[in-house]
């Protein structure tokens, strides 16, 4: 897996809700077959004066036939706001692919993909990969409200989708981690991404039941390539870089 810096062309900027959008980027004739679920990219934001460092985003999807990668982005500040204004044919300077990836389970196991907010982003690519290995995972997706609820059509193609919203506007009311599916179903593997409090709850759920669980962390990053040591997470193996030794960690390695 060779890291590269490239100017990728925006093929599409799809607005989903007032906060979320998808950027589809063309990798032209470059070989992207080595990108794995869980990996991320570092994007240079040119059209925002207040954005100095690159911004990390998970690989949301890879279309190997069209040779595109897509990013699912939530607008939270100036960097993401500037990116939301990108137009078709604009270029974006991207360093990719970065970080490790989710592991592939043992055959025949039951899998849950649990994502909260923009943490659902890496789960689409992961879900597709799992499907290609013959798994049919369940998905549990959580949002604040229906406004933020995204088109989940793509996720429906992967497996059964369960929803939770904090205001109950769609799916079960409450946090994703309170969803009844977690009580009624038994999983062997859980893969999760989202806000840290949610991940900690998922980790506790899995630890109590001895379920294999990997979480993808979103620690603040400066370089994204292991050079600055800013993104560390405290693990049983000492401080590890989220950008190179993560973003995907087995919960048994975290001191949660």
């Amino acid at each position: 897996m060779v890291k590269r810096i490239e100017n990728l062309v925006v093929v599409e900027n799809k607005s989903l809700t007032k906060d979320y959008f998808i950027l589809v980027l063309s990798c032209a004739n470059k070989d992207i077959s080595d990108i794995k679920p869980g990996q991320f990219v570092q994007v240079k934001v040119d059209k925002s004066h207040s954005t100095f460092l690159r911004r990390p985003f998970s690989v949301h999807d890879v279309d190997f036939s069209k040779n595109t990668i897509s990013l699912l982005i939530k607008i939270v500040g100036n960097g993401t706001l500037a990116l939301s204004g990108l137009k078709k044919n604009d270029t974006l300077n991207v360093i990719y692919p970065l970080g490790n990836s989710f592991s592939i389970p043992q055959p025949g196991k039951r899998i849950l993909l649990a994502g909260g907010g923009c943490g659902i982003a890496p789960l689409l690519f992961l879900g597709k990969k799992l499907r290609s290995h013959g798994f049919i995972p369940d998905l549990l997706l959580g949002f604040k409200d229906v406004e933020q609820g995204l088109e989940i059509d793509e996720y429906n193609k992967i497996g059964r989708v369960y929803l939770a919203t904090e205001d109950g506007s769609v799916g079960q009311k409450g946090y994703l981690t309170d969803h009844s599916i977690l009580k009624s179903e038994k999983y062997d593997y859980v893969y999760s991404c989202g806000p840290e409090p949610m991940l900690k709850n998922i980790a506790r759920y899995c630890k109590d039941r001895k379920i294999f669980c990997e979480v993808s962390l979103e620690n603040l990053m400066a370089c994204g390539i292991g050079a600055c040591l800013c993104c560390v997470v405290d693990t049983v193996k000492g401080n590890l870089c989220t950008c190179t030794e993560g973003p995907v960690f087995n919960i048994n390695d975290l001191k949660w």
Binding site: F52, L53, N219, L220, A222, C228, L229, C230, V232, N239
Partner: peptide
């Protein structure tokens, strides 16, 4: 040295602050 606890960096206008602490 393990360095300082996370968070160790924050972006500031035209720059950044770090407190890696010689990990």
């Amino acid at each position: 040295r393990e360095g300082n606890p996370y968070p160790r960096m924050v972006e500031t206008p035209s720059g950044m602050l770090n407190s890696v602490g010689l990990q």
